[in-house]
Amino acid sequence: MNRVLATALCEFRVAFRNRWVVIATAMMALFALVLAAAGAAPTGDIGVDRLSVVVASLTSLSVYLVPLLALLMSFDAVAGEVERGTLPLLLTYPVSRFQILLGKLLAHIAILGLATGLGYGLAALAAILADRGALAGLPSLWRLVWSSVLLGATFLGTGYALSALARRTSSAAGLAIGLWLVVVVLYDLALLALIVSDAGGPLTTRVLPVALLSNPADAFRIFNLSAAEAVAAAGGIGGAAAAIPLWQSAASILLWPAAALSLAWAAFRKVTP
């Protein structure tokens, strides 16, 4: 355990010096504040507190931003060590490859936690200051924070796996951006196309829920929206998502990090220094 913590400390330090901590935190805070300001304008009366509305828009933001940040922090993890030539020495130390990955994961999760916690916290503060009633939305904010960290862990693990498979930082970066585009952007467009062409047929009712649950970003969105019972308002894919029980999306966001880390471990074990 000490070895994992020592690795995490070392990684955190490196990320801090490379300004990742500042970049991630500033980015989350900036976007969160912009959303909070936008949400503060004409809420009208839709029967929910102001914070829950902010959380709903933060969810849509996190679906894009958290995977992107996670991939940007992780693509260098193994390939960078290979390129710098630091891997052979590290692997002669009495520390297992799994412990090395776990240490990196811990550091990167801490950074993501810090960034999301701070960013969302600022947005929440703004909402609560404007309306005391917004305190009722705190549980959904908390849910958003920890599910964001899990979403981040999934993409961190996937980033390590890509990094180990690519062995070069330049190709690892390309793969990471490609993965982000496919999983976070193109996947949903394809599903939308499916819904439109199927027009409520069997594909929409049977295939769509499975497709949504098997994508960690979609599962994250559905989990947060359905937990906040705001699905109906989200429209589009959200409509179909209403049929998915909460435990299923919860299971998806819990299982994905473990699956991604296993994938990373399997890929890292194949790297010969």
Binding site: R13, R17, R84, T86, L89
Partner: peptide, 9 residues
Amino acid sequence: ENASFHPAL
């Protein structure tokens, strides 16, 4: 051979 370390540390 050619020992290298993380430049940021």
